[in-house]
Amino acid sequence: MERGVSLLGSGGGGDTVTAAALLREQLTTQPGAVLTPVSDLPADALVVPVGVMGATPVFSEKLPVGNEIRAAVRAIEHWTRASIDALVSIEVGGLNGIMPLVAALDLELPLVDADLCGRALPRLDQFSVAAAGNGLAPAALASSGQTLVIAEASSVEVERTARSVLSSAGGWAALALAPIPARELPECAIVGTVGAALALGERALAIGECPEGDALAAATGGRVLGLGRVVEVSRRPGPGEHGRAGFGRGSATVRDHRTGSLLRLEMENEYLLAMHDGDPVASTPDLLAVLDRRTCVPIPCDTIRAGADVAVLQLPAPGFWTDPRRLPLLAPRAFGIDCDPILLEGTR
Score class of each variant (00 low, 15 high):
L344G: 07
T29A: 14
A219T: 10
P138A: 11
E187S: 13
A137C: 07
G250Q: 03
M275R: 15
L41T: 02
D292P: 07
L327P: 06
G51M: 05
T18Y: 13
E61S: 10
P341L: 11
D292C: 04
A71P: 05
E108A: 14
A20V: 04
S144M: 14
D309E: 13
D125S: 04
G118R: 00
G248I: 08
D279Q: 13
T193R: 02
D286A: 10
D214T: 12
V191S: 03
S164N: 13
G170A: 03
G195N: 00
H257S: 15
A189C: 05
Y271L: 12
E241D: 13
E91L: 10
G221H: 05
L198P: 02
P318K: 07
R244E: 14
A75S: 07
V73G: 04
S251W: 11
G221N: 06
R81Q: 15
T28I: 06
A19K: 01
A20E: 02
A72H: 01
A182P: 05
P122T: 01
S89G: 14
T28C: 04
G171P: 03
R203M: 00
G226S: 06
A197V: 05
G14M: 02
S128K: 07
E202C: 04
D106R: 01
A33S: 10
R74N: 12
P332N: 13
R255S: 13
G11P: 03
Q30I: 11
P100T: 06
P211E: 06
E241K: 15
S234H: 05
G336E: 09
G260P: 03
V165P: 00
W172Q: 04
G221V: 01
L287E: 06
S89F: 06
R119Y: 01
T56H: 03
L288N: 12
P285Y: 06
T347M: 11
V158P: 04
A104N: 05
V233I: 14
S128I: 14
P328M: 10
T284R: 07
L23H: 08
V92H: 01
P110F: 14
P186Q: 13
G226M: 02
L175G: 00
G11N: 07
A72K: 07
E202D: 14
L330C: 07
L141W: 01
V224W: 06
V129Y: 00
P179V: 08
D85R: 09
A169L: 13
I69R: 00
T161R: 03
E212V: 15
Q30R: 15
D286S: 09
Q26M: 14
G346M: 09
D309K: 04
I190E: 02
P122G: 02
S143M: 11
G51I: 01
L313F: 09
G94K: 06
L198M: 12
G171V: 06
A331N: 11
G201Q: 00
I84V: 15
A204M: 09
A104T: 08
P42H: 15
V5E: 02
L46F: 08
E187P: 06
D340C: 02
A274D: 13
D286G: 04
L136Y: 01
A306V: 09
V297Q: 13
D40L: 12
L177H: 03
L148T: 03
Q26Y: 04
L288F: 09
I337M: 15
V231A: 10
R264F: 07
D15M: 11
A137E: 01
P37I: 04
A114H: 00
S6Y: 00
P181V: 07
D323S: 09
A282P: 02
A72P: 04
V65N: 09
T36S: 14
E61M: 14
F247T: 14
V73E: 01
V297G: 02
